[in-house]
């Protein structure tokens, strides 16, 4: 049983991993055919991975409703929302428009999903002003450098800021605020990001090797 439960899955990850890795360096027809098949399969398998999230969400809220847990009434709206898209989707066979006219699915997207998703993220803008006032403290030389970079970007990213800079400092003949932003983006930012990038890649490569050779297997769950 241990073979079926543990060793075959570990063999799968190793064989699939090593063969896929090899396709990068061996551009032969056979390796292309292998990669092509695996690409097709991967699309299907990862499509099913979505079901994990869906079942988990629906089960959680179903249990809440059945057990009349705190706030169970709100859980009904999870199902209502789900059906408000799935039923129109099935009726219109997944099409959002028919000859330039919105189908019921297209309508649900435009007037339901669209405002819900965008407002959820738009709310975060309010916390930016709150953070700016309450938490942005210039207490050290490092924080001062951070503030200067932020200040230049916030000011120079909008036309009014560019105009203000030119009006106040234009007479000096010094560089424009956009030149400074450009320099920040092209020099110190590149240096910092490159350092981060190289560091992350080393970590990612080590993790990938650990996965392929079965050293990292947390994703498999407990034995």
């Amino acid at each position: 049983m241990l073979i079926i439960k543990k060793y075959i899955p570990l063999a799968i990850v190793m064989i699939v991993g090593l063969l896929t890795l090899a396709t990068y360096y061996v551009p032969a027809k056979a390796s292309q055919a292998y990669l092509s098949t695996l690409n097709q399969w991967e699309v299907i398998v990862s499509g099913f991975a979505f079901l994990l999230g869906l079942i988990s969400l629906l089960m959680t809220h179903y249990k809440k409703i059945v057990r009349h847990e705190d706030g169970w009434g709100y859980s009904i709206f999870v199902f209502l929302g789900f059906l408000a898209v799935v039923i129109p989707g099935i009726i219109s066979h997944g099409a959002q428009a028919d000859n330039g006219t919105l189908t019921s699915l297209g309508w649900s997207f435009r007037y339901l999903y669209n405002p819900l998703a965008s407002t959820m993220f738009a709310v975060l803008a309010f916390y930016i002003v709150s953070t700016a006032f309450r938490s942005f403290r210039i207490k050290s030389a490092q924080a001062f450098v951070l503030f200067i970079a932020a200040f230049i970007l916030i000011l120079g990213n909008v036309p009014a800021g560019q105009m203000l800079w030119d009006t106040l400092l234009g007479w000096t003949g010094c560089c424009s605020i956009s030149d400074i932003i450009q320099w920040i983006m092209q020099v110190p930012s590149v240096a910092a990001k490159r350092g981060i990038m190289i560091g992350i890649t080393i970590g990612a490569v080590v993790t990938s090797l650990k996965i392929i050779f079965g050293i990292e297997r947390q994703y498999m769950g407990r034995d």
Binding site: F77, G81, L83, V85, V86, M120
Partner: peptide
């Protein structure tokens, strides 16, 4: 907020199905 959870999952489901 709860509507968002359901609608998001429903949308994803339909897009994957078709």
């Amino acid at each position: 907020e709860h509507l968002y959870l359901g609608v998001g999952m429903g949308w994803w489901f339909i897009v994957l199905l078709y």
